[in-house]
């Protein structure tokens, strides 16, 4: 029922012949909706969000957020009965391009401020994006770290096949920043198009090491070993999130951002390897 009412709200029913009747219908629908929302409040959802959240919430999020956002989406639907969270996970830059081209999304969570800037520069964000988590780099090595990699400099050892992300994607830019900070000159065998494919090369043992995010190492479970290195502190990646200006369901989007930034949301993200801002 709530989805139906949400649908009638969006077309706006431009009843050119009977504007009075149309607006009466809208009023009736809104009344029914608020009655629904009232009963939602009565059941006591516990979260601080206002009760009139309903319908579909569309979230565009960086691929590295997949596991934790899916958990948060399920939680959101439970806390707000009648809602449905739809995710589109992908490279932040591709998502940003989709949003500026008019994709109907409510929330955008990017893996770097630079990709968020694309959206804010186009005037597509509602308000100012806020940083909700941070991600730092780690070296991913095959399980047991057979080559005994202990530092960024170890990656320059001859014969070692290292893959990096391409500098055009956030993980590649961060890796280059860390390499510069450590004064390490490294020639990889490949500049991968995203962090997951860099990780895959190590999981399949085609590469001996990759510089990826800590969260990717956590998500890979036992398939790779993570090696922390001090230079990663100089290349921490901020993840900004915002509700979008053209959001079809702005109230739903705001409630979702609220959940992500809440203590419960931060706990889920922390388990995935993210750090607090």
């Amino acid at each position: 029922m709530p989805t139906r009412s949400a649908r009638t709200r969006t077309p706006g029913t431009p009843g050119t012949r009977h504007p009075l009747r149309a607006s009466a219908a809208v009023a009736a629908v809104l009344a029914a909706l608020s009655a629904c929302a009232g009963s939602d409040d009565d059941t006591g959802t516990g979260s601080g969000a206002s009760g009139d959240v309903s319908g579909e919430v569309t979230v565009f999020a960086a691929a590295s957020l997949t596991e934790s956002f899916e958990k948060l989406g399920a939680r959101f639907e439970k806390e707000h009965p009648g809602t449905e969270v739809t995710f589109s996970f992908g490279g932040s830059d591709a998502l940003a391009a989709g949003i500026t081209a008019g994709a109907p999304a409510d929330v955008f969570a990017a893996a770097s401020p630079a990709t968020m800037d694309v959206v804010t520069d186009a005037g597509a964000a509602a308000g100012t994006p806020v940083t909700f988590v941070r991600n730092r780099l780690e070296i991913a090595a095959p399980p047991g770290n057979p080559d005994g990699i202990g530092s960024l400099r170890d990656l320059t050892e001859p014969g070692l096949k290292v893959v990096l992300c391409d500098e055009t994607v956030p993980c590649g830019a961060a890796a280059q920043q860390a390499l510069d900070a450590g004064g390490v000159r490294l020639t990889p065998v490949s500049y991968e198009e995203d962090v997951k494919s860099a990780l895959t090369k190590v999981v399949l043992k085609e590469a001996d090491a990759a510089v990826v995010y800590r969260t990717d190492v956590v998500a890979a479970g036992g398939k790779v070993a993570g090696v922390d290195f001090p230079e990663s502190a100089g290349a921490v990646n901020d993840y900004p999130i915002t509700v979008l200006g053209q959001a079809p369901n702005a109230a739903g989007g705001e409630a979702f951002v609220e959940l992500v930034r809440s203590a419960a949301g931060q706990k889920v993200l922390g388990e995935a390897g993210f750090g607090t801002p």
């Binding site: 490279g91 494919s197 895959t200 090369k201």
Partner: peptide, 25 residues
Amino acid sequence: TITFAGNFPGRTQTMPLSVYLALQR
């Protein structure tokens, strides 16, 4: 190509790969 051979300029970076990466920037 990008999955099997990776992406390194001059060695495995063909035009479609360089187009894709340029698209990001």
